[in-house]
Design a protein around this nucleic acid. Structure first.
Length: 489
RNA sequence: GUCCCCGUCGUCCAGAGGCCCAGGACGUGGCCCUUUCAAGGCUAAAACACGGGUUCGAAUCCCGUCGGGGACGCCA
């Protein structure tokens, strides 16, 4: 089994395309097949090297490594269409020689006018066949005169073209609704329908898995396979991913590209897992599974027929799950850039600084949706000394008691020490429960809400004793308490 | 306009003629946990688009209607 993902490098990797890539990958991985990455860069106006690089990077980020293709090579390359021009030219010549293709001299303007007129008359827009019956000799003369021409496929009249879609079943088209498609543009660059067929054939692709928007291209491609005498691969068309308003997922719905989700702080395994759940189910009422297990269970036959709506809430849920599974060192690595933009990390991180992060982050990650929110949870650590405190009953008494308890420089470096001190503050103030802990929270963290005190308090005092760790300045609990006691006195 | 695809809770899926007065998950409500906000646990409400068939029996098969999407390009 050989499958391929064949993006055109004309922009970022859209999550819909990412899902197509994923389904190809799942199938190949699950069945021991080969996953190919081919770049369809025949649109010279819009294709860019930057887009190609971005797509390649995003696929790698998602962990969808390909076995053959751009950057990794393989036995059926090159894997970039603009590097395969010779292959297309040979095939085009063959079609012309056999009369299965013909030159068309109609100008783009003329075709455009024709199309508009047909639409206005409520007719299906379709190439009228103006040049269809021109003799090869006439065509040769006009070409010799330097007239620009495209090559079109001669679509047979009054025939059915059918294929069995692996996800949908039998799909039938009538050739009368298909206009002769352009195979080769006037500049000699192949058009999509032509290049895919040749490449899929030459790369020995066995299963073409792509978006539903390609379903109406399929009969044209099948006709081409027939013209060449090739056996068509199996086709599987995936339904599209829509926005909450059932319109195609676009920027006005928010993030649409893999890159954006990555920057928003989603983990690749969460995106992958969530995307797999749109239009497919691993079964057994299970949803959150590692990619290799998804691959093991994946069957094209079980893919849903109807469009799916992208639900960021559910993505966030998956992300929460994977954030909790994330190893401390990776978590620290992932969080670092977000902490840096917030000014929480200011220099090169020392080993001690990194150790501090790895110690404190997992606790914070347990209650957060996305990476940047880790910085929100850490805000309390980097509280500006003397910053205004939220009002809370009992503040002056508790501040005084806390300051007294910490006066000898005791550091609340772990949960037990903190609890012991809290207990003595309790004795001094005779406050308890919320009446005690709320003021402590406000004095030490500045706010009435935030991470658990058992987590955040030790994090503060451990960081306060770190020097040249790369972290922003951290005031110790002692400093906080004495300052607060003074302010509130 | 023509052709093609699709139609189970708000959303994503399960369901391949009786196991379904329809199951799970996200979200929503409630309760619990709790020194806060969350997180977590439990729980509730919530759907077979409509109309005809076929059948002893239909969410499951057929037809039609309606609704949604896609395609009709020298874009892919």
């Amino acid at each position: 089994m050989r499958v391929r993902f064949a993006p055109s490098p004309t922009g970022h990797l859209h999550v819909g395309n990412a899902r197509t890539a994923l389904f190809n990958w799942l199938l190949a991985r699950g069945q021991g097949g080969t996953f190919i990455l081919r770049i369809e860069d025949t649109d010279r106006e819009r294709s860019t090297k930057e887009s190609e690089q971005a797509i390649v990077d995003d696929l790698r980020w998602m962990g969808l490594q390909w076995d053959e293709g751009v950057e990794v090579g393989g036995n059926y390359g090159p894997y970039r269409q603009t590097e395969r021009l010779k292959n297309y030219a040979d095939h085009a010549a063959r079609l012309i020689a056999e009369g299965k293709g013909y030159y068309c001299f109609c100008s783009a303007e003329a075709l455009d006018a024709q199309r508009k007129a047909q639409l206005a008359a409520s007719l299906p827009p379709k190439y009228a066949g103006t040049c269809r019956n021109m003799s090869p000799a006439d065509a040769a003369v006009r070409r010799a005169n330097g007239e620009p021409a495209v090559i079109r496929l001669r679509v047979p009249d009054s025939r059915e073209v059918a294929f069995t879609d692996v996800v949908r079943g039998l799909v039938t088209f009538h050739t009368d609704v298909i206009g002769d498609p352009v195979l080769v543009r006037s500049d000699g660059i192949p058009a999509y329908n032509f290049a895919v067929v040749i490449d899929d054939e030459e790369m020995k692709v066995t299963h073409v898995i792509r978006g539903e928007d390609h379903i109406s291209n399929t009969p044209r491609q099948i006709l081409l396979y027939e013209a060449f005498g090739y056996t068509p691969p199996a086709f599987a068309h995936l339904s599209l991913v829509m926005g909450p308003d059932h319109a195609p997922l676009s920027k006005r719905h928010g993030a649409t590209s893999v890159r954006e989700f990555r920057e928003k702080g989603y983990l690749p395994e969460a995106l992958v897992n969530y995307l797999a759940l749109i239009g497919w189910s691993p079964g057994h009422n299970e949803e959150l599974l590692p990619a290799d297990e998804l691959a093991r269970r994946f069957r094209l036959e079980n893919v849903a027929h109807s469009a799916g709506i992208f639900d960021e809430d559910k993505l966030a849920w998956a992300n929460r799950h994977y954030l909790k599974l994330c190893a401390p060192d990776r978590l620290a690595q992932l969080a670092e850039p977000y902490l840096r933009v917030r000014g929480q990390i200011v220099g090169a991180l020392s080993d001690a600084g990194r150790a501090w992060l790895e110690h404190v982050l997992p606790g914070m990650a347990a209650s957060v949706d996305r990476l940047p929110q880790l910085a929100d949870r850490l805000e309390a650590v980097f509280l500006e000394p003397g910053a205004p405190l939220e009002n809370e009953p009992g503040l002056p008494e508790v501040a005084a008691a806390l300051a007294a308890e910490l006066a000898d420089g005791l550091r609340l470096v772990d949960k037990d020490t903190f609890r012991a001190v809290a207990g003595r503050v309790k004795d001094r103030t005779r406050l308890k429960g919320k009446g005690l802990f709320h003021p402590i929270r406000v004095i030490l963290t500045g706010a009435a809400e935030g991470p658990e005190l058992d987590l955040i308090v030790p994090a503060i005092d451990r960081a306060a004793d770190l020097h040249d760790a790369g972290l922003a300045a951290v005031a110790s609990c002692q400093e906080r308490a004495t300052l607060a006691a003074k302010m509130l006195a």
